[in-house]
């Protein structure tokens, strides 16, 4: 924090200067996320289009999307599931389940075995070959995601991963069909760009079914 706000740590407490420094930093962060989205587009535009076609094909074949993540990424998994399940009465919808939203199963697994088996165990119980496993991680190193993708691959599912930094251990997995990387060193900017990635994927899937998503 000190390196981000050097002025603030020099000792003098002038409220007006603190506010000015906060303002400058806020504008800088907005520029960072704008630049990061541009970088994600530059490196992943074709991959996003291709992945959306595969997702649509899976849904056409009766597949379901099973999404998972830890912490803030758990809320992204829930958001993605809600996007597919219901965007309004006139928008095409698809079956999707947020594995990280089932508090009873998650706490049971964490308590009885350990957090590393959370999503893999759920996929072993729920996953079918036609399904899609969609996992999000800011680090790309979460053990429970790595195990989940391997389990999904064994079950014949399509696998999609989203990670930050340089991709982490997820970039070394052989069990991922698609990996989208948001190359930043800020966990917050990574999450913001990851949100755009899965939102755009959801938009493209709806477009594959000949519809425009709400609001576009």
């Amino acid at each position: 924090m000190e390196s981000l706000y050097p002025f603030l740590y020099e000792g003098a407490l002038d409220p007006a200067k603190v506010v000015a420094e906060a303002h400058r930093s806020t504008v800088d962060k907005m520029r960072e996320i704008i630049d990061l989205r541009a970088e994600v587009l530059a490196r992943s535009d074709g991959l996003l289009a291709e992945c959306a076609k595969d997702l649509a094909a899976r849904f056409r074949a009766g597949g379901r999307l099973l999404a998972f993540g830890n912490g803030g990424s758990a809320t992204d998994a829930a958001d993605l599931v809600a996007l597919f399940m219901y965007q309004g009465a006139d928008v095409v919808s698809f079956p999707a389940i947020s594995l990280s939203s089932d508090v009873a199963v998650l706490t049971a697994l964490a308590n009885d075995i350990g957090v590393e088996v959370m999503f893999a165990r759920q996929l072993a119980a729920l996953g079918k070959p036609a399904d899609i496993a969609f996992g999000l991680s800011t680090s790309g190193n979460s053990e429970n995601l790595l195990r989940a993708f391997d389990q999904a691959r064994r079950a014949g599912m399509m696998t999609v991963g989203v990670s930050g930094y340089d991709g982490g251990k997820m970039a070394e997995l052989e069990s991922l069909d698609y990996l989208f990387i948001t190359p930043s060193t800020s966990v917050h900017r990574i999450q913001e760009a990851q949100t755009t990635i899965y939102h755009v994927l959801a938009e493209l899937v709806v477009a594959e079914f000949g519809q425009s998503p709400v609001g576009t």
């Binding site: 541009a38 587009l41 535009d45 289009a49 959306a52 076609k53 755009t196 755009v200 493209l204």
Partner: peptide, 17 residues
Amino acid sequence: AASDVVLAFERRLAPAL
């Protein structure tokens, strides 16, 4: 299809600015 992706990202710019 990739041009749809470009358009999707472009729609994000003005609200961020």
